[in-house]
């Protein structure tokens, strides 16, 4: 049935993990959780992301009550001081406030994109893996095509024409982000539909919606989450890139990427470190933290590692 000519290292890795059957379903999640908390970088990642989430959610408070979009032409390009912890930008806006509100943008774009991605990936990967045959072949070819296409060109084309905005960025990134995850879902469906408990469910007369939603889908959850962290990383990085290029979130809304656009002016880059190092570091730290979480989850969800 499976006609994977091309070995795909990434999905193969996840594939290995989940085709092993669990004897007690309740214990699987407990074991994943236990193993995850032992992974120190992953715990550090969770801490960092939680801090960012708190800062972002309570932005009005954590920005010390400063409006991030209010220009103040009396205080242009001020270095960090007691009044402006991280200085001010080219039209006198407070950098700390902009960073905090920028976290809102980055994280919300990230999570919404992953949400869209998961829905598309489950639909396409699920149909492909559950029904197999011609449907599978067509959908796989389509997935490969989307995967191979230089989607960055499509993304800049579409965001440029759709009037750059945060919502358009979310939709476009979601539309082009699903192929990797859908392959994971497909391979999970392929292996899970052959399991004994699915056979048993079918034997007692459960129809396909019941089998898909009650018996197969829950089993695909762990690899979906792992692959979702990768999607989160990709979405945060691409949003920053698009905003950097002026095709994403628009002024005066603060975004880490668009803050870095100004670093392209050589005087800013040379003399005003507070205008570009903080957003650059924040992007890096956020992405690194999510990557750590992803690595931890992957190790925790990998039953091969348990044998060691």
């Amino acid at each position: 049935m499976s006609q994977t000519f091309v070995p795909d290292p990434i999905s193969a890795e996840v594939d290995l993990g989940l085709s092993v059957r669990k004897t007690r379903s309740g214990s699987t999640w407990a074991r994943i959780r236990r193993r995850f908390w032992r992974h120190r970088p992953a715990v550090a990642g969770i801490v960092v992301v939680s801090i960012l989430l708190v800062l972002a959610i309570f932005a009005p408070i954590s920005a010390l009550g400063i409006d991030p979009s209010e220009p103040n032409f009396g205080e242009i390009n001020n270095a960090p001081s007691a009044k402006h912890v991280l200085g001010t930008d080219g039209i006198g806006r407070d950098m700390w406030a902009r960073l905090v509100y920028g976290a809102r943008i980055s994280l919300s774009v990230g999570f919404v994109v992953v949400g869209i991605t998961i829905v598309i990936a489950i639909v396409i990967g699920g149909i492909s893996g559950y029904f197999g045959g011609t449907v599978d072949t067509i959908l796989q070819r389509f997935t490969e095509a989307v995967m191979l296409f230089p989607s960055f060109i499509l993304i800049i084309t579409v965001t440029a024409f759709l009037e750059p905005s945060i919502y358009n960025v979310m939709i476009v990134l979601g539309i082009f982000g699903w192929p990797g995850m859908s392959r994971v879902v497909r391979s999970m469906f392929l292996s899970l539909r052959e399991t004994d408990y699915v056979l048993a469910a079918r034997a007692v007369g459960v129809r396909w919606p019941g089998i898909v939603f009650r018996h197969i889908l829950p089993g695909t959850l762990a690899p979906i989450i792992v692959s979702g962290t990768l999607g989160l990383v990709g979405a945060i990085m691409t949003e920053a890139t698009l905003s950097f290029l002026g095709l994403g979130v628009q002024e005066p809304t603060p975004s880490w990427g668009s803050m870095l656009t100004h670093a392209m002016q050589l005087p800013v880059l040379r003399e005003m470190w507070w205008r570009w190092i903080p957003p650059a570091v924040l992007i890096f730290v956020t992405v690194l933290a999510v990557n750590f979480i992803g690595d931890g989850l992957r190790d925790a969800a990998d039953p091969m590692a348990i044998e060691r």
Partner: peptide, 11 residues
């Protein structure tokens, strides 16, 4: 892999 290309470029 945690550093977006443009951040690298700027650095």
């Amino acid at each position: 892999i945690s550093t977006p290309l443009f951040v690298f470029a700027i650095f």
